[in-house]
Design a protein around this nucleic acid. Structure first.
Lengths: 365, 365
DNA sequence: GTCCGTTTCTTAATCGTTTTCGTGTTTTTA
DNA sequence: TAAAAACACGAAAACGATTAAGAAACGGAC
C-alpha cells in the first residue's frame, strides 16, 4: 500500500508537504508540487477514503433508504428511475451512494444508528414505510434527509406534482368529450393517492361534472386483480363510464384485459388512462394515455437538495420541491361514442374485427 | 461525538479496555465488560466505521458496477432483481453495498482506482459493457470480482442457465405440437444470446427439426420496433412459423401488437413465447409462455461467492455458478392449427370475435 | 520467601490523512 | 541596512479505533 509516507520518503520531503502538494495548497512551491505529483503518479498512489473521512469528517457518501419489504421496490420503474436520477446527480457532485442497511454482523441497529456508524452525510428516502418507527426516527434526526413523494416537517421533500398531473389528465379526457369519468385510485395511505383523488374531484367540479360515488373505486397499485374486478363492476353499472382512470399503468392492464375479453375496443367503445408513463405502457396498441412523471428529475433534484443541505446547512431551506410531469396523449383515450355505448353493448356484445391502432397499419387485405 | 475515549473517561479505564470489552475479548473481566457496555449504551456510543476500516483494513462494503449508459440498467426487471437479491444476501452477511463510481470532485478515476480509494472489498459487475478498458482492468485486477452472465477467466461468474432455459422452452413448444418454430434472438455480442441461440439450434436438431435460416432473426432486447418488423416478415413467409420465440418478454410485445393487428389470435392462430418471466408478462391475457430466470437467486449467489472470495481467499475457487430458471407455461403457446393457419390466413384475415383467454371468463351474454 | 502462571488492565504504536503552528530563508519595504 | 512581510517547508497532534507487549496483582507450589 503506497501512502503519503511512501511518497514523502521517495521525494525526501515530509508527509505534510506531500499532503499539501496533492491538495494543491498555496504554501508549497510549484516545483515541489510537481515533483510530488509525479512520484505519486509513478508509484500509483491512491488516497485512502477511510483515513480522509476519519480526519475530515466528510465521507462524501450518501445513503439511500429503499425498503424491499413490499417486494416491489427496485422493480418498480418509477422508483428505479428516481434512484437512477439520484445516483447520476450525486456522482456528478462527487458523492457516492450506499443502500441503507441495518444489519451489522448479525446484530441489528436502527437506520439512524447505521447511518451514523457509516458516516453517511445524508439520506434520501426513496421507498419506505413512513409509519415505521425506524423511519420516523431517521426523519426526526439531525441528519440531512430528503424524502420522495412524502412530506415531513423537517425534511426537504421532492414530490411529483400529482395535483397538476391528475388535473391535466382529467382536463384532457374532458377535452376529448368525456363526461362520465371513473377513477380507480390506489391505497389511501399514501400522500400520492390523496393528492390525486383530491385533484380529480376538484377538477371534475371545476369542469361542472358530478362525481358519482359509484365511479370512485379502490385497487392496489401495480396489481391487476382488483383493477379487473372494479372494471367489471364499472362496466356493469346502469350508466357505465366512458373513460376509466387507473391507479397506474400496470394496474390498467387488469382493466384492459377485462375490457378486451368483453369484445370492447379501446378507445372506440371505452377509453382508459393510466398513470406513471412506464415504458411498457407505450408499447401497447393503442399506446396508453397516461401522465409521465419525471422520475429522473425527481431523483436529480433530491440529490441536489440533499447535497445543498450538507454543504451549506445555513442557507439551504427545508422545503417542498415539486416536479412537473407531462401528459402522454397515447391513443387509449378517444372521443366517447355516446349513443353506441349502451349498457347492453357494454355487457355482452361480440365485436367484429379487432381493435386496431387508431392511426396504424391495417391488415393488408 | 462519543468515542471510546469518552467511555474510557467515564468508566475510569483505558481506551484499550473499552475496545476489548465491546469486542468481547477474553482478557477483560466480566464485571468490567458489563460496566463498559452499559455506559456505552447509556452514552449512545456508535463505532466509527471509517476508523475501524482504517485500522483493520476491512470496510465491509462491496461495490456494484451498474452502468446506466444504455439507460436500461436499473429499470430492467432482470437486473434490478439480481441487484435486489445481491443486496439482501450481502446485508444478511453484514456487508453493505455501494454503486461503483468514477467521479471524485469533478476528476475521473478508473473503476479500479475508485474501488481501491473507497476500500471496497469486492465488486460485482451486474450490468456493464465488458469490452471497455475500465471494466476489463477491473476484472484483471487483484480485487475479488464476481460477474453476472459473463465469463472471464479470473472472476467467479454467476449465470442464468440460458442453455437449459432455451432447451426447456423449445421442448415445451415442441411438446405442444409445433414443428415450425422461429427464434428472434437478441444482439449477438452477449454470451446470453450465444448460449440461447446455440441451445435453440441444438435442441431443434435433437428433436429432428430443421432450422430454416429464414426462421432465425435478430432484434434488440427490450425494443419492440425491430421485433415487430421481424414478426411481419415471418408472417409473410410462404411457410410462416407456428410459434415465434422472442428475445424477451418486452420485445415480444412488439410482435404481439403486429399479430393482433392482423386479427390473428394468440395462441389459436399463432403461438408466441418470451424470455425472462417479467411481472407484466403474466398480466396479459393470455399470459405469456416464458422462462423465468431466478434473478434473485443469481444475485444472492453472487453475493455469497463474492464474500467467500473475500473471507476465505485460499479455499474459494474461481468458478462458474449456474442458476436454473423455470418454465412458465402461460397460455401464449397452444397447439398449432396446422390446416387453418395458411399463408392467406396469416396475411389478411379478419377474425370474428376477440382473442379470449383460453380458460377464462367469457363475455356474459 | 521465591518463583511461576493467571488474570486483568494499561501503555503505546499504528492505520493514512489533515492541519495548526513554528521556523528558517528569502524578498520587499522604509 | 534593518525591520517587516512573504514564502516554503517540517514537526507534531489529532481523527477513532485495534492490538501487541508489558505490568501489576494475586494465588498457589515448592
Amino acid at each position: 500500500m503506497v501512502s503519503l509516507k511512501t511518497i514523502a520518503r521517495e521525494c525526501g520531503v515530509s508527509v505534510a508537504t506531500v499532503s499539501k502538494s496533492l491538495n494543491d495548497q498555496k504554501d508549497i512551491s510549484e516545483a515541489t508540487k510537481q515533483r510530488v505529483r509525479q512520484t505519486a503518479q509513478a508509484l500509483g498512489y491512491l488516497p485512502n477514503a477511510a483515513a480522509r473521512a476519519l480526519k475530515t469528517n466528510h465521507s462524501y457518501s450518501l445513503a439511500v433508504l429503499f425498503e424491499e419489504d413490499a417486494g416491489k421496490g427496485l422493480t418498480h420503474e418509477y422508483f428505479s428511475m428516481v434512484l437512477t436520477g439520484f445516483m447520476q446527480q450525486a456522482e456528478r457532485q462527487g458523492y457516492d451512494i450506499t443502500f441503507l442497511n441495518h444489519c451489522v454482523e448479525s446484530s441489528r441497529m436502527s437506520y439512524y444508528e447505521y447511518a451514523r456508524y457509516r458516516n453517511f452525510e445524508g439520506v434520501v428516502i426513496v421507498c419506505a414505510d413512513y409509519r415505521k418507527q425506524g423511519v420516523t426516527d431517521l426523519m426526526n434526526s439531525d441528519l440531512p434527509v430528503v424524502t420522495i413523494d412524502y412530506v415531513h416537517h423537517n425534511c426537504t421533500a421532492v414530490c411529483s406534482n400529482n395535483i397538476k398531473g391528475m388535473e391535466d389528465l382529467v382536463r384532457y379526457i374532458h377535452g376529448q368529450g368525456h363526461r362520465r369519468i371513473a377513477y380507480i385510485h390506489g391505497q389511501m395511505i399514501s400522500y400520492v393517492t390523496k393528492d390525486r383523488l383530491a385533484s380529480f374531484c376538484r377538477t371534475m367540479e371545476e369542469l361542472g361534472l358530478e362525481v358519482s360515488d359509484a365511479y370512485i373505486r379502490t385497487a392496489d397499485y401495480l396489481e391487476i386483480e382488483e383493477a379487473a374486478r372494479q372494471t367489471e363492476e364499472l362496466l356493469a353499472l346502469p350508466e357505465p363510464p366512458t373513460c376509466i382512470i387507473y391507479p397506474d399503468d400496470t394496474a390498467l392492464i387488469g382493466g384492459r384485459n377485462v375490457i378486451m375479453e368483453r369484445g370492447l375496443r379501446i378507445p372506440e367503445d371505452i377509453s382508459v388512462a393510466g398513470y406513471d408513463g412506464t415504458r411498457v405502457s407505450q408499447l401497447f396498441h393503442p399506446a396508453i394515455t397516461t401522465i409521465r412523471q419525471s422520475a429522473n428529475e425527481v431523483g436529480a433534484q433530491a440529490a441536489k437538495r440533499l447535497i445543498d443541505l450538507i454543504q451549506k446547512p445555513r442557507t439551504t431551506l427545508v422545503e417542498r420541491v415539486v416536479i412537473e410531469g407531462s401528459l402522454v396523449p397515447g391513443q387509449s383515450v378517444g372521443r366517447p361514442s355516446e349513443g353506441r355505448m349502451s349498457r347492453a353493448a357494454a355487457r355482452g356484445r361480440k365485436r367484429e374485427g379487432f381493435p386496431t391502432k387508431q392511426s396504424g397499419k391495417k391488415p393488408e387485405n
